[in-house]
Design a protein around this nucleic acid. Structure first.
Lengths: 231, 231
DNA sequence: TTCCATTTTGGCATTGAGTGCTATAAAGTC
DNA sequence: GACTTTATAGCACTCAATGCCAAAATGGAA
């Protein structure tokens, strides 16, 4: 009550910062999540994630340690950035697909679509993905951050094949799909394949064939050091 | 430098405890990993993982906090128990399979085989699996603990289809397979399906068909509460 | 201008995990 | 009994994360 509501069901990672409307009352925030993320990623990239303390990040941004934790719930969360927003897109993509399109095809196209990024974002994204797939603390945290992603996929699968989203079928599809996506991300972040969506597409095509060994063209693609082009 | 090495490349989870042979020199250990695990799991089960401090575990066992960390690298590692030993079995199963047997069939049988447990172990295993798949800190840690599992599978796949174990194909199979296994574990730990290997088998059969929607018999199995029969 | 409500910030204290160092206790050997 | 080996306990320390409260900053109202 006593609140000029305008919707604003957006404050997932930003607790009190970023009010729903642009009313400017009270003290203005001294920084932004984006600014903090840029400074932090720069430190992570140069000194390493574990070797960078929250105090150093806060000091680089020009805020106190306590304020840092008002913008991000943890040091790890900085690396994920605005990941939550992408989940809405994934759900829309999955639920908006025609019923007669095969399930795994919908899934593949949805994941590919939600992972298209502009050329300007790719450098920072590669740093993020590289950290997520190599630093143990972040590899660990990814399981928690991607849990909601799994829920979205499991809901979609449950609608298609029936049963509860918690039952074996939907859960297996969701977690296997997550594995495929993470494999694509990690491979893209490792070497310099500039084609992130291509890697995702290939991973999901492999998944949808049940990893059949016969179509070798699906297997010999993303291997930069061995295959010398051709074939 | 200045270090009398004796080999001993076995100390993964048990740093100084448990020497390779049974020579009894020096002070004898005052407890065992198993004893600590039992006490800790009991506390986790009753009070919750996060609400249980290492001090409480140590006090329950009758050792000091510092000694606890000589038996386990972290509080989370207690829940995994002797997980490392199973990895050797998995590798043996995978590498010992005949070349003409289909890859995904070998994988399914290997994972099923390494997850057979005696009736006496199932109660504790369910507690472990329940914690691993529900407590956020453990869900997170699972990504790190299962990384080696993924490496074993990726090595196996790379031998079959060629290329580096780090390339997209093997990585995708490995991570998707891990997802399938985790889904089976979680479903088994949730409800009271006493058939753990059955769940694993079903998950890997789904995976090997590329999650084809048509064979409905694969999808409608593990769904205890809903499924009022009829579509 | 002064007071007030609102919102962000910063400092302080606290908890808890995890690590390094050192002294001590227990066991066998000479 | 002296010596070596091994495990333990205790202490100090770092760092992430949280709760609490006072102070600062901003706009609006009296």
């Amino acid at each position: 009550m006593a609140d000029s509501d305008t919707g604003g069901a957006e404050g997932v990672g930003a607790p009190a910062v970023r009010p729903p409307t642009d009313i400017t009352r009270g003290r203005r925030p001294s920084t932004t999540r984006e600014h903090i993320a840029r400074q932090a990623l720069d430190l992570f990239d140069r000194r390493g994630f574990d070797a960078t303390t929250v105090d150093e990040i806060a000091s680089a941004v020009g805020i106190s340690r306590r304020t840092f934790f008002r913008y991000y719930d943890s040091k790890r969360d900085v690396v994920w950035g605005e990941f939550d927003a992408e989940m809405v897109r994934l759900r829309d993509q999955l639920m908006g697909a025609p019923r007669d399109e095969p399930m795994m095809e919908v899934l593949r196209r949805a994941v590919v679509a939600t992972n298209r990024f502009g050329a300007g974002e790719l450098d920072e994204l590669r740093i993020r993905m590289g950290l997520i797939s190599t630093v143990p603390a972040l590899v660990a945290h990814s399981a928690v951050r991607y849990a909601e992603w799994c829920d979205v996929v499991a809901d979609f699968v449950a609608r298609r094949v029936g049963g509860s989203p918690k039952s074996l079928g939907p859960q297996t599809v969701a977690r296997a799909a997550l594995g495929a996506a993470m494999a694509a991300f990690a491979c893209w972040a490792r070497h310099d394949s500039d084609d992130l969506t291509g890697e995702v597409d290939r991973a999901f095509r492999l998944l949808a064939t049940g990893f059949d060994e016969k179509p070798l063209r699906l297997w010999v693609t993303g291997d930069p050091q061995s295959s010398s082009s051709g074939s």
